[in-house]
């Protein structure tokens, strides 16, 4: 196999696809964080609402990504390309993000919250000074899962016209070109690992050393 050779021969194309891939993932990530972390915090006080939203997220998560792309590309105003890709990927990010925010807030020891109440904190203060900082480790674990997930699923957006690394894999299959497939797969994985690593660095800076999470956490996925 000579995927390195393939990358050298097609540097311009590979760079373009990589840039598109990364920009899609980062855009989706920023949107998702703003949207789903806020939603997660808002619903954390209402058990039944939280159940319903997480249930919806689970349902979305069970639909194959290619179906979601196929369904949303027919929605007027979205069509082929980046808009549909963004909407679908943001929807995919819903389940892991909301779930981790919810789990994080719920995992905060009731005794600590009580202590805060006892000190005269308002509900908002409780949320911002106790629950959010203590939920960070769980939330961050969710963010890292999401980053890896989105990077992988973004490859599927090639079927609705995104010119990203998924195209290398798809065309590799069509042409029977193994080097092309390996090159695409490898770069996507590297991007996922790199983003995960960067998030890990950020995590170390943000999270109180008193709260560091175990990274070898059981895989929960959509079950």
């Amino acid at each position: 196999m000579n995927f390195a050779g393939f990358i050298c021969d097609n540097t311009g194309l590979v760079l373009e696809y990589t840039a598109n891939h990364v920009s899609l993932v980062i855009g989706v990530l920023l949107l998702s964080l703003a949207l789903w972390i806020t939603t997660g915090l808002l619903i954390s006080r209402h058990a039944r609402l939280a159940g319903a939203v997480i249930g919806l997220g689970n349902v979305v998560f069970c639909i194959p990504s290619i179906s979601l792309f196929g369904l949303f590309m027919s929605v007027p105003g979205l069509g082929l390309g980046r808009r549909t890709a963004t909407v679908v990927l943001v929807l995919y990010a819903m389940m892991p993000l909301i779930r981790s925010v919810h789990a994080g807030i719920r995992s905060v020891d009731a005794a600590v919250v009580n202590a805060g109440k006892g000190m005269g904190m308002t509900n908002l203060q409780l949320l911002l000074k106790i629950q959010v900082p203590m939920a960070w480790p769980a939330v961050f674990a969710g963010i890292r899962v999401t980053v890896v997930l989105i990077t992988g699923i973004a490859t599927m957006a090639t079927f609705i016209g995104e010119r990203n690394l998924g195209r290398l894999i798809h065309q590799g299959i069509t042409r029977g070109d193994a080097d092309m497939i390996v090159a695409g797969a490898l770069i996507v994985s590297l991007i996922a690992l790199l983003l995960d690593y960067l998030m890990g660095r950020v995590e170390r800076i943000i999270i109180s050393p008193g709260l560091r999470y175990q990274s070898l956490e059981p895989y929960r996925g959509s079950a």
């Binding site: 990077t151 490859t155 797969a185």
Partner: peptide, 13 residues
């Protein structure tokens, strides 16, 4: 972290 599309594709060659 390997996307599912890639896993499927890698065995095809």
């Amino acid at each position: 972290t390997i996307p599912p599309l890639a896993v499927i594709a890698l065995f095809f060659p």
